[in-house]
Design a protein around this nucleic acid. Structure first.
Lengths: 111, 111
DNA sequence: CTGGATCCCCTATGATACTG
DNA sequence: CAGTATCATAGGGGATCCAG
């Protein structure tokens, strides 16, 4: 039985109210999200392309992460009704603006 | 028994090799880390001060996060052998350089 | 080809109690 | 005051099968 006052969820809420940085971190801290964004930006904009590059990933996880990213407004997807179905992913403006932050992070971690 | 080929650990390794951004994200994605860094920067540099501000946090979690941050080289701690014992935390250079990245993240999430 | 449904496992997070 | 030891839990990550 789930306790009505799940401290886990409550804490998350507290964090988001306390500081918007935590929201941002939440969005990008999914295990594969940063990588997916980077690869899409590099033109690997299909499900199967991403799957090949992120070799250890499972279909399910990739799908889940893509969905998350889409809901967070970082990527958009376009379904092309060919046979077989094709889906193109691309970064939104918000997704693109993340790239420079990633650059900063790379610099930072290397320092 | 832990499986020898824990895919979880392997994937993490894969990620770090693939892209150093993931390392950085790992360091800051602990649930309370960003907040702790920010508050220490604002002068809330004691265990009990942090505990008061981060009201929902438990001793255990706060201690663990502080330890993580220390091991990652983001904060340093100074033990002052008074009675009772006092411990001062402060940001290292690396910790301080994170602040500007947090600023970027705040801007980004607000956009 | 692109994923959803389902189930399992692990790890970070949390609560509580105890120590110097 | 400043933690550590122990135990419990939820949710993310993962594998496999299934579907449009």
């Amino acid at each position: 039985m789930k306790k009505s006052n799940s401290s886990n969820a409550l804490n998350k809420e507290f964090l988001h109210r306390s500081c918007s940085v935590n929201e941002a971190i939440d969005l990008i801290s999914g295990r594969w999200k940063a990588l997916i964004i980077i690869y899409i930006h590099e033109g690997q904009n299909r499900f199967s392309l991403l799957k090949n590059i992120l070799s250890p990933i499972s279909d399910q996880i990739l799908g889940r992460q893509l969905k998350d990213l889409e809901q967070n407004g970082l990527i958009s997807k376009t379904i092309v009704p060919e046979v077989p179905v094709r889906v193109d992913y691309e970064l939104t403006a918000k997704g693109k603006s993340l790239l420079s932050i990633f650059d900063s992070l790379e610099e930072w971690i290397a320092s």
